[in-house]
């Protein structure tokens, strides 16, 4: 494939307000972004609104992306998380079901969804899932509450009735364990593009 289809090339075309480039970028990231948004908000309609907000921001403010800060996919996921957690807080639909199921981190992937385009991502995804599964339950719980449910460390401390220091140490140990297992992938990064 020519360079015309890389993330950077598409982004440049989006900056030039090329609708076709936005469409291509959307098609490339729709599924992983939607799945990530759905994982956080657990509501199909709200997840769609999150995806819409992300691509609207991309369309209007693509110049905010700084390639020096990391890969485009990471940037999109980061913004998606911000939008999703803000939306979750705004809608105030939190239920215990949405935030206490640490075992959600262990759910198996849907094998039917393993299409060729996302196969690489799924292979890496399984490595990440495996790394998460290796954490103990307490560590998985704080990771779930902070990263996927958007709670701050103080909120986790209050919610789980554990000292703030314990929350910090669990996160520290969890991150250390993940880093040990995933460092090589993290360095390489992941691209959905050609």
């Amino acid at each position: 494939m020519s360079d015309n289809g890389t993330d950077a090339a598409l982004l440049a075309r989006i900056l030039g307000k090329d609708p076709e480039a936005l469409k291509l970028m959307y098609e490339r990231y729709e599924r992983p972004i939607y799945a990530f948004a759905y994982r956080i908000v657990k509501d199909a309609m709200l997840a769609e609104e999150v995806v819409q907000e992300l691509f609207l921001r991309l369309w209007n403010s693509a110049e905010r992306y700084d390639s020096g800060q990391g890969m485009l996919s990471s940037w999109l996921f980061t913004i998606t998380r911000n939008i999703a957690i803000d939306a979750l807080r705004l809608r105030q639909t939190r239920t215990s079901q949405q935030v206490t199921e640490a075992e959600q981190l262990n759910r198996e992937p849907d094998p039917e969804s393993d299409t060729a385009g996302l196969a690489t991502a799924n292979v890496v995804g399984e490595q990440v899932r495996s790394a998460i599964r290796s954490l103990n339950e307490d560590q998985q719980e704080v990771m779930e509450l902070i990263y996927f449910a958007g709670y701050t460390q103080q909120e986790v401390s209050a919610k789980c009735d554990i000292p703030l220091g314990t929350v910090k140490s669990r996160v520290r140990l969890a991150m250390k364990a993940l880093k040990t297992q995933l460092e090589d992938i993290g360095k390489e990064g992941l691209s959905y593009g050609p």
């Binding site: 959307y26 769609e48 990471s74 993290g186």
Partner: peptide
Amino acid sequence: KAIVDLLPLSVEPVQTPAGMQDRIL
């Protein structure tokens, strides 16, 4: 951050709603 950036990949795939692309674009 490089490690945290991998966490979205742990999410299992879900089917996108029908017509979402047309609605959003």
